[in-house]
Simulated assay, not measured.
Amino acid sequence: MEGKVIFIGAGPGDPELLTVKGQNALKNADIIIYAGSLVNKEVLSVAKKTAEIYNSASMNLDEILEIMDKETKEGKIIARVHTGDPAIYGAIGEQIEFLRHNNIKFEIIPGVSSLFATAAALESELTLPEVSQTVIITRPEGRTPKPESESIKELAKHNATMCIFLGIHMIENVVSDLLTHYPKDTPVAVVKKASWRDQMIVKGTLEDIASRVKEAGIEKTAIIVVGNVLNPGDITPSKLYDAEFTHEYRKGRQNK
């Protein structure tokens, strides 16, 4: 039997936000390697009793790849469990490169990103008509470098909805960069551990969010959302359900 690696997006934290497909893959896996620093361990409760479980938080890449290579050669199914959706800051690229180079079969099962759990926690739509129709997903530069054209300062020029991962520990620097183009009264929200039982939300503006975050003691595992979609005032309805608007599935009133 041929082995296989299945990358699974475990969702943002709430175990009920794991997809059905992801859950089925976990149930059938012989080996589970999960990002223990971020993935809620309750997600693994569906694993079979004989499954070998490794916490990748204490492993380096070579150790992870060694297990994948060895166990797939023995016909084992490996579930590689990442937080949220593995396509966003999931560090799967280097793993996929290894699997392709060694002709090891793999599959990717998408998951619910913490970004969307954050939007749900804020009871917000990130793309409101005439407010913002663009969402920028980014992170500040830290030990992982970024192209200069993707700096927070450069991206802020668009005044779009911005969702910033991995930047809460440098909130003052992030705010300083944002203020080069966003007004100081631009709404900002920080959501820590979106969808977890101990979820925390802090709201403010670019003028005061840094002090509010410090006061709340938030230092990691949080997303910063910036933009007028968080406080849009009167909302312009979408054309999709406008009674006067005709589309493929419905004629508007004016066309009756």
Rank of each mutant, 00 (worst) to 15 (best):
A189C: 09
A210L: 07
A25G: 12
T72C: 04
I32A: 02
G36K: 00
T221Q: 08
A29K: 14
I209K: 04
T186W: 12
M68W: 04
M1V: 11
T127P: 09
P183K: 14
L26F: 12
L65H: 05
L230Y: 13
G217A: 01
K214F: 08
E244N: 09
I223Q: 03
A91C: 14
I168T: 05
L179S: 08
K27G: 05
M1R: 08
G9P: 10
L115F: 15
K193M: 02
G233A: 11
L178P: 05
T50L: 04
I33M: 12
H169S: 15
K21R: 15
S238L: 07
M162P: 05
L18K: 08
K41I: 04
N173V: 00
W196C: 03
K203L: 02
K146T: 07
A222D: 10
D85A: 09
I67Q: 11
T50C: 03
I218R: 02
A47W: 09
A25Q: 13
F165W: 15
L166C: 09
V131Y: 13
A210I: 03
K220V: 01
A120E: 14
L65Q: 13
D30T: 13
L155H: 07
T19D: 11
G3Y: 06
M170L: 01
I223D: 05
P147W: 06
K192P: 02
S211Y: 04
F165P: 03
I92G: 12
